[in-house]
């Protein structure tokens, strides 16, 4: 075998493993409020717990609501932005952030809305994107 070929193969294998390793690190799994307790960042899918309301507080400038995760556990979620468009409309939410005590601090929120126009109806939209 030519040395060039060997170098090439080593480079490709090295690059691919590094890429796959990093890819594996940068994805995580969807979890629940309970499962989020021991993660620094968690993606939690769920639905808005309508009965407990939702509101934006002018003092803390945070949007607060309760979300039921897939186990049916309802927890308070704090989101540091104004209430996203379509919030009430969303069939499903995914909050991304961390659990502290009984409160989930979301840095990001994705909403699945019954879309009217999209090529892929029901595409998730980033809360801050809609």
């Amino acid at each position: 075998m030519k040395p060039k070929l060997i170098i090439g193969i080593v480079a490709i294998v090295g690059f691919t493993s590094l890429l796959m390793y990093n890819f594996g690190e940068s994805i995580s799994t969807y979890t629940t409020f309970e499962g989020a307790a021991d993660r620094s960042t968690a993606h939690i899918p769920g639905t808005w717990d309508e009965e407990k309301g939702a509101g934006f507080s002018m003092e803390t400038k945070r949007f607060t609501f309760f979300m039921k995760d897939e186990d049916g556990v309802s927890r308070k979620v704090v989101y540091p932005k104004p209430k996203p468009n379509n919030f009430e409309d969303a069939d499903q939410l995914v909050v991304i952030g961390e659990m502290r005590g009984d409160i989930f601090y979301a840095n990001e929120m994705l909403m699945k809305c019954p879309s009217k126009y999209n090529d892929d109806p029901g595409k998730f939209v980033n809360a801050s994107e809609s």
């Binding site: 796959m20 990093n22 890819f23 594996g24 940068s26 994805i27 995580s28 799994t29 969807y30 993606h43």
Partner: peptide
């Protein structure tokens, strides 16, 4: 990621933007 991420975890999320 929904397909290939399953090599690593179940129910994979999309990768972080930093990826």
């Amino acid at each position: 990621s929904p397909i290939l991420g399953q090599l690593f975890v179940e129910n994979p999320t999309p990768p972080e933007i930093s990826f």
